[in-house]
Every structure is written in C-alpha cells, then in structure tokens.
Design a protein around this nucleic acid. Structure first.
Lengths: 244, 244
DNA sequence: CAGATTTCATTTGTCAGACATTTGAGGCTG
DNA sequence: CAGCCTCAAATGTCTGACAAATGAAATCTG
C-alpha cells in the first residue's frame, strides 16, 4: 500500500483505493477488522481526518461498516444483495434522468431483460409468486386507482415475475432496470382503456407462467412492450415537442 | 433540509442523504455548484470536517465532483455511463465473491441476459463490431494463449455482442454481469479441446449475427451456456469437494 | 465463590482553528 | 492590446481536543 503525496488525485482517494483493492483481492476478508483510524493514519503517514475521509468513501459504497466503542472500528462488510439493490437503483435512476435516455431505449432494455427471465420464471415460479401477480392484476383492474398506485402495482407485478426465476443475480441486475423506469412511467397518465389493455396483458402473462409456458410468457411480454411504447409515443406526441 | 443531532446514523450521513435527495428530486441540477464547504457548515450548523465527510460520500458515488481554486467547489456531476459501468462492475464482483454465488447461478444469469441482447444485436450490429468478434475468435484459436488471455478475449467477444444491440442501458446492465463473471471463469483451466469447442460456438454466433439471424444467435448462446456449465462442473468435480 | 455493578480504556464522531495548494480573475506593465 | 503578476477564494490537509458509545476488566455484594 504505497501512497504518493504528490498524486493530484488526493491522499484520501489513494487510501480509499488501496483499501478497496485489498478487499477485492481478498487481502482483507469479510468481517475482518481494519486497524483503527489512528493506526491507519500512522501507517499511511497522514492525519486522522484524511483517513476518515477515505473510510467514508468506502462506507458510502457499503464496502465497510463502522462501529463505535471499545471493540469498535471499521469492518469489511459483506455486501448483501439488499445493499447492492439499492445502490443499483440509485445509479440507474440517476443515469436515466441525467443522460436524457429516451423512453424507447429504456423500455426496450427493460423488456429485453424481462424476457430473459420469463422462461426460467415459467419453470420455477412458486404458487406464492403467482398469487402475487394475480393480486396485482386484480388491484390494477380496480377503478379509482391513482396513476402512481397503478405504477407501483406494475412494478410489483414485474418484480414477482423476475423473482420467479429464482436467480438472485438476475433479480439484482433487473432491479435497477425495472425500478429506474418508474419515474419515466410516472410521466404517463394512463387512460382507462390503456390500463385495461395493460392489465389484460398482465393477466395473459400470469396465465402463461401458471401453465409453465415460457414461449407464451415471452410473447406476452413482447406485446406488452409494444403496447407500452405505443402508449408512450401517443402521450409524448400529444404533449407536443417536449418529448426529450 | 433538516438535520437531527441526536440521530444515531450520524450527522455526515444525514447531510449526505439530504444532498443526495436534492439531486434525485432535481432541486439541484447537473453542473450546479453547491455552496462552499464553509457555507454548508453554517447552513447545517455543523463543522467543516463533518460537511467534508458528507461530500466525500457523495463523491464516492460519483454524484458530485470537486474542483479546487478560486472558482472551485462541489458540482453536481452528470453521471456518465462510464462511471456507472465501473461502479456496477465493482458492486457485482464483490457481490459474487462475497456471497458464495454458485458458478451455475452466475452463468445462468449471464447467458440469460446475453440472449436478451442477441436478437437486437442481430439486427443492429455494425460491421465494426462483427469484425471485433471475428478478430477475437481468431485470437482464441491461437495456440499458446494463456488462460487469462483467453478469458480476456472471451469478455471482449461478448462485450462486442452486447454493444451490438446499440442500447446503452442494456450495455450498462450487462457490463456488470459479464465482467463480474471473469474471476469465476479464471478459476477454470481450459483444455485445448474445450477451447476449441468454445471458439467454434463463438464462430457460429458471429455467423448468426452476420446473417441477422437472431434465433440462431440465441440457439448458439444456449449451446455455449450448456458447454460452459458442463466444462465448469467437470473442473469442479475433478477438484473434489471444494466447489463452493 | 458467583453474579451484579462500576469504572475505565479504546475507538469513533465531532469540533475549532490553522496552513498549504490550486486556480481563476482582475489589475498592472510594456 | 497582450502578457505577467498579484490576490482572493476554495478545497486539501494537519494538529489538537473533547464527546459519546461500548465492551472488558475491576470491584463490590450476597
């Protein structure tokens, strides 16, 4: 772990990188305690605040956790799927909102990824997950639902579909894609008729998964993608030029 | 932006969350300059080092960038796809290495996601991307290649396939899945015969993309997945029980 | 001697003030 | 007008200090 005081990147950045590297390479293993801030400051020949800034960087990425008290200190954190989810969702949301990603592009990506899950989900979905989807379909058919509630239900439906694949890596990867779409979806006001079309397609997809028919589920998702994109293009067209 | 001094989470965490929220909701827009550290310290009624720790947390997530000098300060950063890539790769790599994700699970996820790209890539891949794939196939067929170089070439091949879909959101999502697999792939020593099988399948997939035949590309990827998993199970079986 | 209580050392969290370094802006000079 | 210089503003870093949390050891009590 060598630190160059003249490196323009900054001392705390270098220290953070060094520790991060040690974690990735396995030099520091999960739940291992790092030296105390004072000891690290001595080792790296810097002051304690500088070390602290480095540790904060790592804590922001859930790479370490800190604990106060006599036996406290910084510990290498086991990155949970839950932590990874939330990081991914934040990153994806910002990426989409800051880079003027078109609705079509995001939509295409989302449904392409979901179609990847569908065959697995058709084989493995639990009765519980199927029930969740049915319940969300029912909720979506209720009149008087706000747009926001409809979108929430939509996310819950798709989440159950993805989780049905029983592959945590897939679920993790898709969490970002599905959730990050929500702000874009919320820009759309759904008419009663368009809601009905979507709900019907959801129902069809649930049927396909119940019958363990992966191909039918994929086909249903394709139709749903087409419907969603058509709906969005209508909305954006009606609003005039501000579709960016 | 209210800060509770008694909140056990810590002041710097609360400040970081408050600013992050302001960025996500759009109260702070891209390239907008935040107040100086001293001003923030006054606003939040905390000391400057505390503000700094909060800013470092945000910088670690590429949410802000800092610049020294007279016109310097902290600016809201436009999260680039490049930044998002590297964050995703780090997160995915750690997630896989720290949670004992089985090779099968990771492999299944990776190929499921790639198959989602294949039909799009078949329609849109540029001649350049096709040439990259051909070049990597050629490189893989060279004798005397180290295992590591073979894996690198494998990643490059699949990267070209994914980028061929010309959907930056898909590329971003898959970067993590493909790259995070590399450490697991590197655990495998490839025999000459298994390399040949993989290279042949790569060639077949490139053919399918050249002919704009998405179905054939998907079929090729399915065979490749089967081959990879068979290969891995053989390797792990040969090594005895330590296949976790 | 066993268990409960108190004290204490360790470590992180926060603060205050200071100096070093970078860097653009404005003024000065030729 | 162009080039150089000075200066102010802001971040980066350091020193030293105190507060708060917390587990462990020492002490007290039955």
């Amino acid at each position: 772990m060598k630190i160059d005081p003249d490196n323009p990147a900054g001392l705390s950045v270098q220290i953070a990188e060094a520790i991060k590297e040690a974690i990735i390479t396995g030099d520091l293993i999960v739940d291992e305690r790092l030296p105390s801030e004072s000891e690290l400051a001595d080792q790296f020949k810097v002051s304690r605040p500088t070390v602290r800034e480095a540790l904060k960087r790592l804590a922001a990425q859930s790479l370490i956790r800190t604990q106060r008290g006599a036996t406290g200190g910084a510990f290498v954190n086991r990155l949970s799927f839950q932590d990874a989810y939330s990081q991914q969702i934040t990153t994806s949301t910002l990426l989409l909102s800051m880079n003027a990603v078109s609705f079509d592009t995001a939509c295409e990506a989302r449904y392409a990824l979901e179609r990847a899950c569908a065959p697995l989900s058709a084989q493995r979905r639990t009765p519980d997950q199927l029930a969740t989807m049915r319940a969300e379909v029912f909720r979506q058919s209720q009149p008087g639902l706000t747009d926001e509630a409809f979108c929430d239900s939509d996310v819950a439906f798709h989440r159950a579909l993805v989780d049905g694949a029983h592959n945590p890596v897939l679920s993790y990867q898709l969490a970002g894609a599905v959730e990050a779409m929500q702000p874009l979806m919320n820009m759309i006001t759904f008419t009663a008729r368009s809601r009905e079309a979507i709900t019907t397609l959801h129902s069809r997809i649930a049927d396909a998964l119940e019958e363990a028919n992966g191909d039918a589920a994929v086909a249903g998702l394709k139709d749903l993608e087409a419907e969603t994109r058509k709906l969005a293009s209508d909305v954006f067209a009606a609003r005039g030029t501000r579709s960016g």
